[in-house]
Design a protein around this nucleic acid. Structure first.
Length: 549
RNA sequence: UGGGGCGUCGCCAAGCGGUAAGGCAACGGACUCUGACUCCGUCAUUCGGGUGUUCGAAUCACUUCGCCCCAGCCA
């Protein structure tokens, strides 16, 4: 068979295995899984994991299970499984099956009994504190539990009693019998089952004992016939344990192989579920879909296209080295996508009135919706000679190479005419309050008339008569501190992360039904939404660089 | 200081013994009815350091330094 070209070390490993014929018994089919725990919403870090897993699935024409890793009833809920499914679908990833670790509780229990029967597990009566104390330290071996050598019959009886609910939480646990003096702490008789009289969101109170990740995960992989279990670096130390459980599970070969990769970090983006949950719970943000959140839903409400996110993950790559990607790299992917797809519109954030003294009447001008894509069509823009431009587009003391309007200078009004500023009315503080200009009819946009007037700059504008009020919301990224200071984190988020401006926008923005992202000329990419009948423009990402060079 | 990982341009990242890809950022310049976009050009005599092996090393060996992970009845 001809192998696809590997683009990262994981695919390289898969290619090598395929070449060696490792999966011939199963028709060379690759099976992977994406296993979030339904205890929070998916964030951009998960998108990387999905790109890797779904990427392998697509490249090798394999299958992928979306698996809810729900073995801790205390934290999990349907709210989260629904949000996860929604996020996966919005991103356009197609999984083969939606499965739950909790689907395997019976099977898992059965396999746990097998471990006992094989002498590989025992019931331990030590308290949590005692277990911790006897685990040893990083440099000293642990000591064996006094319950380690109970008979198989006694272990079986005790384990069944644990299951039947006769013991309170914490009274007993089932432990794997491995090696208390292993240099790998994870191998020092890890706990397989704990007692928790907590109802599970799916199985209700059918169970009062729940399997631990270290046992449930590898065995779930084996049950599903997963060939490659891709996870992040912190599980490297668990791999020997993963293999230990899989090899003794009695499940048919081929055994799954765990491969670890470095998780995604982005400057100024906080990706810890714990903190994100805190922000939501303590109402520092409106919810998991708040546009300032790095969650899939936050990115969605912000207007970021899924394709831009996938491109970003592809650009960032997959490796084992710890890394922090510059947010500029994400922004670049978003800009690239939006530049190609987003419609263009005009709006001014700080309106400065500009009156054209030699213009009478009004007219309708044609604007292309997207200069990079003529098929996007055109929209009409009304012009009455009395308009607003942005305060930033006029200067009383222009710096060198200033391209926009100044007294006595000219500028082109985007899509309309070139105007010359004849007079400036100042307010009491000496700032420009209104501009009086003359326009040049022969400079009309698209006109073939000869025109001697030139303008270096182009500015956007909104008609005074037809423009509508708009609110602009600018979002700073979620802030991340090296030290993760709980205290002022949320405070800073509120203080610095959301800014509002009020200005004027084209009526086109208010009227257009769709709320797909668009670009405000020279200002940035925005998403339109309606709040209580108000036009709200939320920033997606700013244009690169720009003003005042 | 036990064990497991990782160290290639400011930030990601290819490279797998034959003489340092690419992306982001930055910096020049061209173009432009968005100071955007696009386009052209510049940006690692060097791969954490050292020592060996070799005709030849980022790639192999040894050594040294630095960073990350592991002692939840979380995942």
């Amino acid at each position: 068979m001809k192998l696809p070209e590997a683009t990262n070390f994981i695919e390289q490993i898969i290619n090598e295995e395929l070449e060696a014929g490792k999966f011939e018994g199963i028709g060379n089919e690759i099976h992977v899984r994406f296993p979030p725990e339904p205890n929070g919403y998916l964030h951009i870090g998960h998108i990387k994991a999905m790109c890797i897993n779904f990427g392998v699935k697509d490249k090798y024409h394999g299958t992928l299970n979306l698996r809810m890793d729900d073995t801790n009833p205390a934290k999990e809920d349907y709210e989260y499984v629904n949000s996860i499914v929604e996020a996966v679908k919005w991103l356009g990833f197609e999984y083969d099956k939606l499965v739950f670790a909790s689907d395997y509780y019976d099977k898992l229990y059965e396999i746990a009994e097998k471990y006992i029967l094989d002498g590989n597990a025992y019931v331990c009566d030590l308290s949590a504190e005692e277990i911790t104390a006897t685990r040893g330290t990083l440099t000293e071996a642990g000591t064996e539990s006094p319950y380690r050598n109970r008979s198989i019959e006694e272990n079986l009886k005790l384990f069944r009693e644990m299951k039947s609910g006769v013991y309170p939480d914490g009274a007993k646990v089932l432990r794997a019998k491995i090696d208390m003096s292993s240099p790998n702490v994870n191998m020092r008789d890890p706990i397989i089952y704990r007692i928790a009289h907590v109802p599970h969101y799916r199985t209700g109170d059918k169970w009062c004992i729940y399997p631990m990740y270290d046992f449930a995960h590898p065995v779930s992989d084996a049950i599903e016939g997963i060939t490659h279990s891709l996870c992040s670096l912190e599980f490297e130390n668990h791999r020997p344990l993963y293999n230990w459980f899989v090899e003794r599970s009695g499940l048919p070969a081929p055994l799954p192989r765990q491969i670890e990769f470095a998780r995604l970090n982005i400057t100024n983006m906080l990706m810890s579920k714990r903190y994100l949950k805190k922000l939501v719970d303590e109402k520092f943000v409106r919810g998991w879909d708040d546009p300032r959140m790095p969650t899939v839903m936050g990115l969605k409400t912000r207007g970021v296209p899924p394709e831009a996110l996938k491109k970003f993950c592809a650009d960032v790559g997959v490796a084992k080295a710890y890394s922090v990607v510059n947010q500029a790299q994400l922004d670049s992917c978003i800009r690239d996508n939006l530049n190609l797809n987003a419609e263009r519109a005009m709006a001014v954030i700080n309106p400065l009135k500009l009156t054209i003294t030699n213009y009478g009447g009004e007219e309708e001008l044609d604007f292309e919706k997207n200069p990079t894509n003529p098929e996007a069509g055109a929209r009409p823009v009304k012009f009455s000679g009395s308009i607003y431009i942005d305060k930033d587009d006029f200067s009383l003391n222009p710096p060198p190479k200033y391209k926009r309007l100044q007294k006595g200078g000219t500028v082109r009004l985007k899509g309309a005419y070139i105007v010359r500023c004849d007079d400036v009315k100042l307010d009491k503080d000496g700032n420009a309050e209104e501009l009086f200009c003359t326009y040049f009819p022969e400079s009309k946009s698209g006109s073939t008339l000869p025109c001697d007037i030139k303008a270096k700059g182009v500015v956007q504008w909104v008609d005074c008569k037809y423009g509508v009020d708009a609110e602009f919301r600018q979002y700073e990224p979620l802030l991340k501190d090296e030290e993760y200071p709980d205290q002022d984190y949320a405070e800073r988020l509120n203080r610095e992360s959301e800014k509002s401006f009020f200005g004027k926008a084209e009526p086109y923005l208010k009227d257009s039904a769709n709320d797909t992202p668009f670009q405000l000329m020279r200002t940035g990419y925005y998403k339109k939404c309606e709040e209580n009948g108000r036009l709200v423009l939320s920033e997606i990402v700013s244009l690169k660089d720009s003003f005042n060079k």
